[in-house]
Simulated scan of single mutants.
Amino acid sequence: MAFELYYWDGIQGRGEFIRLALEETGSNYVDVTREPDRGTEEMMQIINSSSEAHIPFAPPFLRDGDQLVSHVANILFYLGPRLGLAPLDEASRWFANGLQLTITDFVAEVHDTHHPIATSKYYEDQKDEAKARSFEFVRNRLPKFLDYFERVLTQNSAQGGHLVGNGLTYVDLSMFQMIEGLLYAFPKAMTGHESRYPGLARLHRLVKNRPAIAAYLASPRRLAFNESGIFRRYPELDIDR
């Protein structure tokens, strides 16, 4: 049976971290809300179910037969061993999960640069607060996260330039998506990132050039970044480091 991925149509968002793992491994999956005969209504029926015991709080979530798994890091922790994208030893699998959870925190801070007050308000209703939050993000939080992941790469360099273990894992794919999103949303702040973070830049290129990922990026399945997703390009929020 095909994996069923449930996420909002029209944006990459958090669902993209799951798509990259499925695309890299050539997995059979259905992007449910993009199916004309299924759509968002089917996703909301599960979320609002009054009978499903394991209801998710929000998308993305994944159905694998009778198993329903929610939250990006949890889904990837579930998929990783099944798709060959997780380390073989238990200690490394837990470390990979910790890295993915740190990426989850990173994603949340990116989101809050344009919605620092409330997700129920439009960006235009909180522009002043967004500008202040983005200044703090670019000057302090962005380098803190990137410095950490660069250090993890450096200290694992003997294993072939991956974040954990000696082969490609879902964490490498997720870091690729983070760099892609940051280059879109904060091109000025990311200027010169290749020299500041050479390990992350190499990893980004490695993932981008993998045959399955390159084919996916060139396909209509890969939606473009836009100002409805997590990574949004608002020039007034992008400042020099």
Results as ranks from 00 to 15, higher is better:
Thr119Arg: 13
Val72Gly: 11
Asp105His: 08
Asp125Asn: 03
Lys127Met: 13
Gly98Leu: 07
Glu16Arg: 08
Val207Asn: 01
Ala214His: 12
Ala212Thr: 14
Lys121Asp: 14
Glu23Asp: 03
His114Phe: 12
Leu62Glu: 12
Met43Val: 05
Leu173Gln: 12
Ala185Thr: 14
Pro235Asn: 01
Phe137Trp: 08
His162Cys: 09
Gln177Ala: 10
Phe149Cys: 04
Glu24Ala: 05
Gln12Met: 03
Ala86Thr: 10
Gln12Trp: 02
Thr33Glu: 08
Tyr78Met: 13
Leu183Asn: 14
Val207Arg: 00
Thr113Trp: 06
Gly165Val: 11
Val110Lys: 02
Met178Arg: 00
Glu236Ser: 04
Thr169Glu: 05
Asp112Tyr: 06
Ile239Arg: 06
Ile230Lys: 03
Arg63Met: 13
Tyr148Pro: 03
Ile103Arg: 02
Leu182Val: 09
Glu136Gly: 01
Ala58Pro: 00
Ala189Phe: 13
Arg233Glu: 01
Pro87Gln: 09
Tyr197Gln: 08
Arg196Cys: 02
Ala218Ser: 10
Asp105Lys: 04
Thr113Val: 13
Pro60Val: 04
His193Asp: 01
Ser219Lys: 08
Ala118Asp: 15
Ala53Tyr: 09
Gln155Arg: 09
Gly161Gln: 07
Arg241Tyr: 08
Leu99Met: 09
Asp105Phe: 04
Ser228Asn: 15
Tyr123Ile: 08
Ser219Val: 04
Tyr6Met: 02
Leu88Asp: 11
Asn209Tyr: 13
Tyr148Arg: 10
Glu23Gln: 10
Gln126Thr: 14
Ala86Tyr: 10
Tyr78His: 14
Gly15His: 07
Leu203Arg: 09
Lys144Asn: 06
Met44Cys: 00
Met44Trp: 10
Val32Trp: 04
Ile55Leu: 02
Thr40Ile: 07
Ile213Lys: 05
Leu79Trp: 12
Arg141Phe: 06
Gly80Ile: 08
Phe77Ala: 13
Ile75His: 11
Ile55Phe: 02
Tyr184Phe: 15
Asp172Asn: 02
Phe145Asp: 06
Tyr148Val: 06
Phe176Leu: 00
Ser49Trp: 10
Gln155Met: 09
Thr119Asn: 10
Gly10Pro: 05
Asp172Val: 00
Gly84Asp: 14
Thr25Ser: 15
Ala86Asp: 11
Val32Lys: 02
Glu236Arg: 00
Pro143Cys: 08
Gly165Ser: 09
Ala2Arg: 06
Asp64Met: 04
Arg141Gln: 11
Thr113Phe: 06
Glu109Gly: 00
Thr40Ala: 02
Ile117His: 01
Ser134Gly: 10
Thr33His: 00
Phe225Ala: 00
Gly229Asn: 00
Asp31Thr: 01
Phe145Trp: 11
Ser49His: 09
Tyr216Ala: 07
Gln100Pro: 04
Ser157Met: 05
Glu4Trp: 02
Ile230Thr: 14
Arg93Val: 00
Lys208Gly: 15
Ala215Leu: 05
Arg133Thr: 15
